[in-house]
Nucleic acid binder design. Sequence first.
DNA 1: CTAATTTGTAAAGCGCCATGACGAAATAGT
DNA 2: ACTATTTCGTCATGGCGCTTTACAAATTAG
Lengths: 402, 402
Amino acid sequence: MTAPLHEARPTGRGRALPDTQQGMRRRNLARVMHTVSAEGPLSRAAVASRIGLTRAAVSTLVDELIRSGLLEELGPERPGRVGRPGSALAVSGHGPAGIGAEVGVDHLAVCAIDLRGEVRARAVRYGTNRGRSPRPVIEELTELVGRIVTEAEHEGLWPAGLAVAVPGLVARDARTVVRAPNLDWHDTDLGALLPAGLPLTVDNEANFGALAELRLGEGTPRDFLHVSAEIGIGAAVVVDGQLLRGTRGFAGELGHVPVRPDGPACRCGGHGCLEQYAGEEAVLRAAGLEPGEDRVGLLAGHASDGDTAVRRALRDAGEALGIALTGAVNLLDPEVVVLGGALAGLAPWLLPSLEAELARRTAGPACPVAISRLGPEGPLLGAAHSVVRAVLDDPAAVAGRG
Amino acid sequence: MTAPLHEARPTGRGRALPDTQQGMRRRNLARVMHTVSAEGPLSRAAVASRIGLTRAAVSTLVDELIRSGLLEELGPERPGRVGRPGSALAVSGHGPAGIGAEVGVDHLAVCAIDLRGEVRARAVRYGTNRGRSPRPVIEELTELVGRIVTEAEHEGLWPAGLAVAVPGLVARDARTVVRAPNLDWHDTDLGALLPAGLPLTVDNEANFGALAELRLGEGTPRDFLHVSAEIGIGAAVVVDGQLLRGTRGFAGELGHVPVRPDGPACRCGGHGCLEQYAGEEAVLRAAGLEPGEDRVGLLAGHASDGDTAVRRALRDAGEALGIALTGAVNLLDPEVVVLGGALAGLAPWLLPSLEAELARRTAGPACPVAISRLGPEGPLLGAAHSVVRAVLDDPAAVAGRG
DNA sequence: CTAATTTGTAAAGCGCCATGACGAAATAGT
DNA sequence: ACTATTTCGTCATGGCGCTTTACAAATTAG
């Protein structure tokens, strides 16, 4: 008897609304938004039965949401059954927009999505950011953001927030980049560099990638492990639809799980960490390749050309991943493990040995491994979606603006 | 900026109360109970400021809880400050009782605690249950439960529920023992064997042990890992005060995390699992001891006598634990790792190598390791506390009975 | 064409918390 | 000693939000 997956419920980390009548109202607004967002066009009566309120109550909630521009009335439903047909409701395509941005090692990207999750504007600028100081990079990003914001406004949207994905560790204040090794940034407060007009959230790209998977992936599991390898190897642990951040915000450091305790030394101080076998550097070295621009493409190219050294390197990396994931799966019993980021592109050569290890070491049915369909788009989309999610979680907070 | 730990909030897994006025009322009753329970005697005004309601609202909530026998008025507080002193409130010592029971390999135990957490009655019966069929064991347990229930009633308590800890895997229905290797029980529905009068919960003893740690341990962290070794090695993962059960209910299988991937074969199908190094059997074998009755005492005795083989066996087990826990800590970033069950008694000899491995393999400050003060009492107390917790989580549900 | 069913809305009602005022009980200051 | 101040608990009033009940509208079934 598992929990009903289709039950839409608020997902925000701040279940902080007080148990007062106003808080109740806001939560119910959120529940209506989540339900309509998750289950497509729905009549008021359908929403009411889903969330357990009466039709009359839902009517007033919907009225308020329509007035705020968060919901739209699509008109009468096609009447398949007996009785008066309902009037279909959908989240608005002309209301708030989520602005997502990504600072990649080799590019900058910004996009805008509406509440329905449709990408309404996007911009990408290529060129390495490795070693550039934060200020010019963020200035460039700010310019892209400005362009996308005006583009979104031309489409009748108004930006509700900005979320920035960075390839590094972000402090719990969601503004400061503690360290981004591949950019060589340390303790950089992006809040001070970005325009102050929009509510800002900064987070690790792996976390945003997992968020994207949560909303856009197939089946939308509530408990899963999202493994991505851009810088090092990171995993986002999602429990009950919530990202697990850990006490100090360091959760998900899969890259430093010991795989062979007596293996080669790692810069973390340990020995035989996963990163020593499946990290980008290690795999390139094992494959006998020079680290260049498009490392993933390079590996994938050689592998599909039949380069045995590369194939062996990837097979060994998959094996190490399988061992590390066995530990994680034993500990967490997730519904599925999703390979994202660079791993998604290399999956054909990683997966056989990875799944073999996982199956071999698991009593009973092994945890399924899936490939992210979003690939490199994940973090950007997830960032934008995090803004949408915030709107769905507390519609009343944004209803005034706009 | 971490979340306020002292903020009492409902912890039950079922945040299922609808967002209606009645649901709000019930949640507020729960918040009052949690606050008073967590922060000792408190005046109405103090409760009001803690949970963010007005004094008037809290007054009516408290009235209702006092009428139900869940709260008690202790009389005027000693007036240290200016102003009229408040009237101290405390959870009742004469209201509902939580009945906890434990089916151990070598004993049966039952206890009753009041809402304050005080043990008001207890009974233990020694004698091995290994290989006995479920029915006579549960009949014996039922008799003990009956005795404790009447004893509790003599003290003015009324039993609100029964929770049974078993050394094995329990299905998600919280009634059926899927398998308990050391008892040789399989697919046993305890609900059919136990008296039907009381709401019943059956769970793994490690989970209840973690629950006890959550309420009775020092500091009461909300994110921690509770490792216990009774049968095999299990870990309870507690995230935000909630037990992580996993998709299939198999979370926490620390015993089968790979430590040395090419190590000896394990019955789980893997190789070099933690259990092969730190499991009871493995340690006894390495120590050159015969498995007898009181295995923990045997090991502890030899170790404190200076038996080098035993000490080395324990040191090696600690090392393996350290390696496995490094992985877990990297993944979850818990506030603390707590060693419970048999591990608590052997901690003096396990801890040095365990902590050394953990520190050596962790960049930055290592996760602290604590020893459970509850030791073998944990599961029993945790079971009883789970009933109390259910009462605190929804006082309205039990107010009628009694 | 009527009966049945379902939807959405409106009016009345009720529960719950907030507000504001009050007496009670302590301390602080003169 | 006496007053002013502060805080506590309670009461009456009010507002807000959901439910109940009723009804018109729109469809299908017979």
